[in-house]
Design a binder for these strands. Structure first.
Lengths: 202, 202
DNA sequence: CGGAGGTTTCAGAAATCTTTGAAAGCTTCG
DNA sequence: CGAAGCTTTCAAAGATTTCTGAAACCTCCG
C-alpha cells in the first residue's frame, strides 16, 4: 500500500508528482516520434525515474494500463534492452529496471532498426536500377526517359549510401565523420544540376 | 493524351515500370519511417522519377488514390516544400514537380519538426525540475527520492541539449561537431554510475 | 456573365493499430 | 504434488488514423 501512492487523489504531494508525470509524458511523445508506441516511452520513463525496481502491477497503476498491456509493452522494451528484469528473493513477482545508458539504447536502435531499413532501401534501389537497364537494353522503354530515371535512382542510391555511412559512424562510436556529410551536401548540390547534365553519361 | 501513358495495361514495358514502382514503394516506406504518411513519400517519388511535371490526375492514376487524397497529400508536400506547383500556359490544371534537393528537404524537416520537438521536451524538463525542487523545498516529498529523480531529469536534460546541438549543427551545414557527441557519450557513461552514487546518499 | 473543368473541403466509411479481459501457462511455496 | 499467484497469449472491442465520394468553391474561357 505504502508503495504506490499512484491512484491516490491529489494531495499536497501533487506538484512534485505532476513533475514526474510530465516527464513521463514527454518521453512518451519523444518515443512516439521515434516510431515506437507511446507507452513504450512512458513505461521506460516511469522506471527510469523510479529509485527502486517496479513490478508489472506498479506500472499498470501508474500508467493506467491493463496487466496485459504492461506485459506486451515491457516485453518489447526487454527486446530492445531498454529494460531489465530483476527478481527479488522472497518475491514471486518480476521486477523491472530501466536501462540508464540512453546512449547505448539509441545506438542499439539505430543499428538494428534504421540500418536494416537503409540497407533494404539500398538493395531495392540496386534492383530497380538493374531492371531499368535491362528494360532499356531490350528497347522496351524510351531511352531518354530511361536515362533520366536512372540518374534519379542513382542519386537516391548515393543518398542512401551516405545515410548508411553516417549511421554506421554514429553507432560505432567514432563519431560523425565530417567528411561523409559534407560529401552528400556537395554531391547533392551537384546532382541538382544533373537535370541539365542529362546527356553526359548513362 | 499522349502525355499520360499512366493507366495503360501492363505490356512489355512492365519490367522497367516495375522498377519505378519499387522505388516509389521503398521511398514510401522510408518516409513512413520518418513519421510521414506513406503516400507522401510515394507521391514525391513519382514526381521525382518523372521527367515532366504531372497533374493531380496523373498522380491519382499512378498511385491509385482518389482526387481528394491527392489534393491532401500534395498539399502537405507543398507545405514541406517537397513539391512545387507549376502552371502550363494553355492548361487550366495544376502541374507538380518534385523538389530535387533531398538534402534541403531533410534539413528543413529536421529544423522545423524535430528541433521543435526537442525544444519542447527541453522546456518540459526544465519545468519538471523546477516543480520538483519546489516540492522538495516545501517538504512535500521525500528528500532522497527527490534528489534521485532530480538527477535523472538532469540527465535527460543533458541528453536533450546535446540532441538539440547535434540537430542544429547538422542543419546549419557546419557538419557534425564531433565534440558534441563525444561529450554525451562520456557523460552518459558517468551518469550511469549515478546509480552507485545513489546508495551513498539515499 | 454563364458554364466547364479542376481543386478543395468535409462528413462518413474503411482500414489500421491498440488495448482489453479472459483463459491458458508457468513457477514457486507449502 | 497441488495450490496460489504472476505472467503471457489471443481473439474481440475500442480508438485512431486515413481514404473516399459528394458537394462546394474557384478560375478561366467563351
Amino acid at each position: 500500500m505504502s508503495r504506490s501512492p499512484s491512484t491516490s487523489g491529489s494531495t499536497d504531494l501533487a506538484p512534485a508528482f505532476d513533475a514526474e508525470r510530465e516527464v513521463v509524458e514527454v518521453v512518451g511523445r519523444l518515443m512516439e516520434f521515434w516510431g515506437f508506441r507511446r507507452h513504450l516511452g512512458r513505461t521506460w520513463a516511469v522506471l527510469y525515474l523510479s529509485p527502486e525496481p517496479l513490478t508489472a502491477n506498479d506500472l499498470a497503476d501508474r500508467l493506467q494500463l491493463s496487466a496485459s498491456a504492461i506485459s506486451l509493452t515491457v516485453g518489447e522494451l526487454l527486446q530492445w534492452g531498454a529494460v531489465k528484469k530483476t527478481r527479488v528473493p522472497g518475491d514471486r513477482r518480476d521486477f523491472f529496471v530501466a536501462e540508464t545508458s540512453i546512449w547505448k539504447l539509441v545506438t542499439r536502435v539505430l543499428s538494428q532498426r534504421e540500418l536494416a531499413l537503409v540497407r533494404d532501401t539500398a538493395e531495392t534501389l540496386v534492383r530497380a536500377a538493374a531492371a531499368l537497364d535491362a528494360g532499356r537494353r531490350a528497347g522496351q522503354i524510351d531511352a531518354a526517359r530511361a536515362r533520366f530515371v536512372r540518374k534519379r535512382i542513382d542519386k537516391l542510391r548515393l543518398l542512401s549510401s551516405v545515410g548508411e555511412r553516417l549511421l554506421g559512424a554514429f553507432v560505432s562510436g567514432r563519431t560523425l565523420d565530417v567528411g561523409a556529410v559534407r560529401e552528400v551536401a556537395d554531391r547533392d548540390g551537384i546532382d541538382v544540376s544533373v537535370d541539365g547534365d542529362e546527356g553526359a553519361d548513362a
